[in-house]
């Protein structure tokens, strides 16, 4: 299942990147037929650019328009100048660019994504925005190519649910965070009663629903990975069986998460 999921997610988000690249002059269609739907069946914006509002300061409209996220993690991450931020699944770069403004001067933001088309789009957006304290890496969230304890803040916007093995992702996030470092992510959270048919649908997976953790799973996964002060705050409903939420946590200060020598 996990390779099948990874490939399906990669294909779908590569298509979304190509689509966004060709659609800069138009607004992202709400409930049109984008590669990744950004709306609920009722037509309310539940994913994407419409969630940004004034929080999108510092990011290029293009990057925000191509956003497929379910919240604005930078709005709750409490970033400070000089900090090093890692964005897991950086996509078109909207959150990287917003964060880059917040951590300047002296700070920088690293975007990690497995989709080359999204990385190209993100880098174009950074160049257009004139932002130079950002870097992009092609890699998997389950195998973060950074040393231990090198990052102050991990952000992520509606991506953890897409990962084939979320517990490994949370462990990797804890490993690269310095002790006391913060996690601030938006993600989809499944209702405890999500049905088996929804869970097994690959289209629901790439659309952020089927792979979502329940709140209880998140709590357990974060504690097991070495996080403390875990907070899960529901923001809006995105599906009959799922909500969007902000998840915040602090990497434990005792070093237990990394198995340091």
């Amino acid at each position: 299942m996990s390779n099948e999921v990874r490939e399906a997610v990669k294909r779908r988000y590569a298509a979304a990147a190509v689509e966004a690249d060709g659609a800069y002059s138009e607004a992202t269609p709400c409930c049109g037929e984008p590669a990744v739907s950004t709306c609920s069946p009722a037509g309310e914006a539940v994913f994407g650019a419409a969630l940004y509002d004034e929080a999108g300061e510092g990011a290029l409209p293009n990057a925000v328009a191509a956003s497929l996220g379910c919240g604005v993690p930078t709005a709750v991450a409490d970033l400070h100048p000089g900090e090093v931020v890692l964005d897991l699944g950086s996509g078109a770069g909207a959150d990287v660019l917003i964060a880059a403004g917040r951590v300047a001067p002296g700070g920088r933001v690293i975007g990690l994504d497995m989709t080359p088309e999204m990385l190209d789009l993100a880098r174009q957006n950074a160049v257009l925005a004139g932002v130079d304290n950002v870097e992009f890496i092609e890699g998997y969230l389950e195998e973060i190519p950074l040393p231990d304890a090198t990052v102050d803040v991990v952000i992520s916007n509606c991506v953890i649910n897409l990962a084939a093995d979320k517990h490994v992702v949370l462990k990797e996030a804890a490993r690269v965070l310095r002790p006391g470092g913060r996690l601030a992510i938006s993600d989809v959270i499944a209702d405890p009663d999500m049905d088996a048919a929804t869970r097994s649908d690959i289209a629901e997976w790439t659309g952020c629903i089927a792979g979502a953790l329940t709140e209880a799973d998140y709590q357990v996964g974060l504690s097991g990975a070495g996080f403390e002060e875990v907070e899960v705050i529901e923001t809006h409903r995105v599906h009959p069986h799922a909500v969007a939420a902000i998840v915040r946590a602090v990497r434990a200060r005792d070093g237990s998460a990394t198995g340091n020598p």
């Binding site: 920088r108 690293i110 890496i137 890699g139 195998e143 190519p145 950074l146 040393p147 231990d148």
Partner: peptide
Amino acid sequence: DPLLIEVLACPIDKGP
């Protein structure tokens, strides 16, 4: 980017 040279590690053993 020089900043990347400072931070990158092998995704397998996390070493330089």
